[in-house]
Simulated assay, not measured.
Amino acid sequence: MNIAFVCTEKLPCPSVKGGAIQIMIDGITPMLKQRFSITIYSIEDASLPTSNQEDGVQYIRFPKEAYYENVANHIGEESYDLIHVFNRPKVVPLIHEASQNSCIVLSIHNDMFSQIKMSSEEAREAIRIATKITTVSEYIKRAIIERYPEALEKTQVLYSGVDFEKYPSRWSNKGTQIRSEKRSELMIDDKKVILFIGRLSKTKGPDVLIKAMKHVIEEHDDAVLVIVGGKWFSDDGMNDYVRVLYELAEPIKENVMFTSYIASEEIPSVWLAGDVFVCSSQWHEPLARVHYEAMAAGIPIITTNRGGNAEVMIDGFNGFVIDDYDEPNSYASCLNPLLHDPHLCEEVGRNGRTFAMLNYRFTHTANRLGAIYEEALCVRNQ
């Protein structure tokens, strides 16, 4: 079976600049290529050729300008049994017009059916054309079918996953060594390390975390908040919000560290350096992939009950879910007991790692997606 992946126009594939969709594609492709012939379309990047074959997978890249038109033209010259469009329902009619005999699977990673993003006519046309629709969480699935009930029978949740080969157990000899080396590199050897990993945007809430640290250091003067990320995926530039973060941190600068953007291949070692991870999402997060990574790293999670975040959480088991997401004290109230009790941290971290190994490996995601592809082809052939 010949399959095409149509990635978004935001970031290249493979995930040389990160991105949840690109990381997921990297993770599931090694398993899916054993069953299907795969071509991956993405935008160009200076570090990648315009086309190449790697480990049996064909990559074709176009400039960001007129990206989807170029993809559609190329697809029209090929023969694909199934085309998987990632997170861009608006382009489904264009892709379908280029290859009318192909099944279309549409995966939704954000609230892309919002009327801010597309009209109801455009949404219904994408739903009509798609044979199957996957969503990253139940939250996103509900958001679609509440507006468009006709999508119900086509739509199912496909949780993402993580590559455990990149995440050695922090209690293994290798994991202990990586942790020690990374903590030494960051000069946090003797600190209680709270991690924030994500884009520096108000929706992600790092400002709330910095405010929470003022309460944390009253009990733990050796705690440090390590903020990993830039204003965009590979952009360490300054904007008004990032300036606010630095200004907020200035009075407690000994307890707050900004690392700026770190390449995705280095992130697993950063996870191992931490003691607690906080996802301080202020918006209705579809389901941030950092939860999967934190579990794989064996680190306890504190997250907000916003959007789909809590769907991979068992409160008190692999972490803690905060309802008062915009209150700094809520974070401090969770962080302080954990930082006082290393045994509790380890127990919760081990629970999370085991939970993810049983449910959220990329092999799980690939197997579930492969079954969706088979179902889609059966529907087409009926």
Score class of each variant (00 low, 15 high):
residue 92 V to L: 10
residue 78 E to I: 00
residue 37 S to M: 04
residue 39 T to A: 07
residue 40 I to Q: 02
residue 116 I to L: 03
residue 80 Y to G: 02
residue 124 R to S: 08
residue 57 V to T: 15
residue 108 I to V: 07
residue 65 E to D: 15
residue 64 K to R: 08
residue 38 I to G: 08
residue 55 D to S: 15
residue 49 P to M: 11
residue 87 N to D: 06
residue 103 C to S: 09
residue 93 P to F: 14
residue 54 E to D: 14
residue 51 S to V: 00
residue 70 N to M: 08
residue 113 F to R: 07
residue 62 F to C: 01
residue 62 F to R: 01
residue 35 R to E: 12
residue 58 Q to F: 10
residue 122 E to P: 04
residue 123 A to E: 10
residue 65 E to Y: 08
residue 105 V to Q: 08
residue 106 L to I: 08
residue 90 K to V: 03
residue 125 E to C: 09
residue 112 M to G: 00
residue 104 I to Q: 00
residue 113 F to P: 03
residue 40 I to W: 05
residue 111 D to T: 03
residue 40 I to P: 03
residue 103 C to F: 02
residue 54 E to P: 01
residue 129 I to L: 12
residue 127 I to T: 09
residue 67 Y to L: 06
residue 84 H to A: 06
residue 82 L to V: 11
residue 52 N to P: 00
residue 127 I to W: 08
residue 90 K to I: 10
residue 78 E to G: 04
residue 77 E to I: 04
residue 113 F to N: 05
residue 119 S to D: 11
residue 56 G to I: 13
residue 40 I to Y: 09
residue 102 S to P: 00
residue 83 I to P: 00
residue 75 I to V: 13
residue 42 S to A: 13
residue 73 N to K: 14
residue 72 A to I: 10
residue 63 P to T: 14
residue 57 V to F: 13
residue 74 H to Q: 09
residue 89 P to F: 12
residue 69 E to L: 14
residue 46 A to R: 11
residue 53 Q to G: 05
residue 47 S to N: 10
residue 47 S to E: 07
residue 55 D to K: 15
residue 114 S to Y: 01
residue 60 I to G: 02
residue 120 S to L: 04
residue 72 A to P: 10
residue 68 Y to V: 06
residue 121 E to S: 14
residue 51 S to A: 11
residue 91 V to S: 03
residue 96 H to W: 10
residue 55 D to F: 14
residue 45 D to M: 11
residue 34 Q to K: 12
residue 94 L to Q: 15
residue 118 M to E: 04
residue 48 L to P: 02
residue 111 D to Y: 03
residue 100 Q to K: 11
residue 112 M to P: 00
residue 55 D to Y: 15
residue 86 F to C: 09
residue 70 N to S: 13
residue 112 M to F: 04
residue 108 I to H: 00
residue 97 E to Y: 09
residue 125 E to L: 12
residue 34 Q to P: 02
residue 46 A to N: 13
residue 108 I to A: 01
residue 79 S to A: 02
residue 112 M to L: 02
residue 38 I to Y: 12
residue 81 D to L: 06
residue 114 S to I: 02
residue 119 S to Y: 06
residue 44 E to R: 12
residue 105 V to R: 01
residue 93 P to A: 09
residue 34 Q to A: 06
residue 55 D to N: 14
residue 51 S to T: 13
residue 86 F to N: 06
residue 40 I to K: 02
residue 45 D to E: 10
residue 129 I to N: 04
residue 123 A to Q: 07
residue 45 D to I: 15
residue 96 H to L: 01
residue 48 L to I: 10
residue 34 Q to V: 01
residue 126 A to G: 07
residue 122 E to I: 13
residue 117 K to A: 05
residue 53 Q to D: 11
residue 111 D to M: 02
